Computed example of a mutant assay.
Amino acid sequence: MKALSEQTNFSPGEIETLMKCTYYSQRKDINKGTDLQSLMEGWPFLFKEIGMTVHFQELTGISLKETFLTNVEKKGKRLLDFMRNSCADKSRRVLQAATKLEILRGQLEGCSEDVKDMVLLLLSYFDEKEENLFHYVEQTCLAKEVHVESLPVTPCIIVCGTSCYAARQFMLSVDCKVVNDHIPDFISAICLMFGTYYCLNIHYPVSLGSTLEFLQRCFFMINPERGTKVETKKNKKQLSVNPRVLTLITNLADQDWRGTC
């Protein structure tokens, strides 16, 4: 796989087979705390979409991108309608975000643009800062030119452009290090970012806990009855499900039920 990672004409099927065959060794290295640079050198495809998809499915039993897109098709429009109407009417912060995104989006259409709206409105709804998830650089910026000292230590999407709507491409960073410098579209970037938390055993930061947990439960369909991936705060009781996440999920379900009556 190290040799194949240097080529551009490798067989996707071969990479998928090799990732499955070496899954145990990958988990062994990750679980014993192998440093990030060694993981990148030893398992180069783990940080690419083709490899992470295999690893995530072996780990969780869930198809990373397919599950996300299926649920975006089922629930995305309902979530956007709820955010732009019900939430915007009640929250000045969400209204301002929705108005700003409408201007940035302009005439752009398509699933990818809807997902951008969805994620950015979720951040606004939960009052979580955009800069904790997205880091903006010049369109022509190369990985080696990114000021990594300004990146968060948790998985972060580097946007090559002034906004997610004007991006030329995306990159992914982990622990202030660029691990994938060529992600062509936003949906792939979101899936890789989310998958990294599971594949590398990383807790959600408190600063993004609600947004990530909502995506986890509503769009990636990971719904444990106990436990949470949000990092634990000392001397603070940790709930199995974030109440604000549960409230939004319930409101969306109620909206869907009313729409079928």
Results as ranks from 00 to 15, higher is better:
residue 171 M to R: 02
residue 158 I to M: 11
residue 173 S to F: 03
residue 184 P to V: 09
residue 170 F to K: 01
residue 189 A to M: 03
residue 172 L to M: 09
residue 168 R to Y: 10
residue 163 S to K: 15
residue 190 I to R: 04
residue 168 R to F: 14
residue 154 T to I: 12
residue 180 N to D: 01
residue 160 C to K: 10
residue 181 D to T: 01
residue 167 A to E: 03
residue 162 T to L: 14
residue 159 V to S: 05
residue 190 I to L: 15
residue 169 Q to D: 11
residue 165 Y to F: 15
residue 167 A to K: 06
residue 158 I to R: 08
residue 182 H to E: 12
residue 177 K to N: 13
residue 155 P to G: 15
residue 183 I to T: 05
residue 179 V to G: 03
residue 179 V to F: 00
residue 175 D to Q: 15
residue 160 C to G: 04
residue 164 C to A: 08
residue 173 S to Q: 10
residue 160 C to M: 10
residue 153 V to T: 06
residue 187 I to H: 07
residue 186 F to Y: 14
residue 162 T to A: 14
residue 186 F to C: 13
residue 180 N to P: 01
residue 183 I to Q: 03
residue 159 V to R: 01
residue 183 I to V: 10
residue 167 A to N: 04
residue 192 L to V: 15
residue 162 T to K: 15
residue 174 V to E: 00
residue 180 N to F: 00
residue 180 N to A: 01
residue 189 A to I: 06
residue 182 H to M: 07
residue 190 I to K: 09
residue 161 G to F: 08
residue 191 C to P: 14
residue 173 S to G: 15
residue 158 I to F: 13
residue 159 V to E: 03
residue 173 S to T: 15
residue 178 V to I: 11
residue 192 L to W: 08
residue 184 P to G: 13
residue 170 F to V: 00
residue 176 C to G: 06
residue 160 C to Q: 07
residue 159 V to Y: 00
residue 158 I to Y: 03
residue 185 D to S: 09
residue 166 A to M: 08
residue 175 D to Y: 06
residue 156 C to I: 08
residue 168 R to E: 11
residue 182 H to W: 03
residue 191 C to H: 13
residue 164 C to E: 12
residue 192 L to A: 06
residue 165 Y to H: 14
residue 171 M to C: 06
residue 187 I to F: 07
residue 179 V to Q: 01
residue 180 N to H: 02
residue 184 P to D: 12
residue 163 S to F: 06
residue 163 S to D: 08
residue 155 P to K: 05
residue 162 T to P: 06
residue 167 A to Q: 09
residue 168 R to I: 13
residue 174 V to M: 01
residue 180 N to E: 04
residue 163 S to W: 12
residue 171 M to T: 03
residue 156 C to D: 02
residue 169 Q to G: 13
residue 178 V to A: 01
residue 160 C to H: 04
residue 161 G to V: 13
residue 165 Y to S: 09
residue 164 C to F: 04
residue 176 C to W: 04
residue 163 S to M: 11
residue 161 G to D: 10
residue 161 G to E: 10
residue 176 C to H: 07
residue 160 C to A: 08
residue 189 A to S: 08
residue 166 A to E: 15
residue 189 A to P: 02
residue 178 V to G: 02
residue 191 C to G: 05
residue 166 A to N: 14
residue 161 G to H: 14
residue 166 A to G: 10
residue 181 D to N: 09
residue 168 R to H: 08
residue 154 T to N: 06
residue 161 G to L: 13
residue 171 M to P: 04
residue 168 R to S: 15
residue 185 D to P: 08
residue 156 C to N: 05
residue 180 N to S: 06
residue 165 Y to D: 01
residue 184 P to C: 05
residue 164 C to Y: 07
residue 162 T to Q: 15
residue 187 I to N: 11
residue 189 A to D: 03
residue 153 V to R: 04
residue 175 D to F: 13
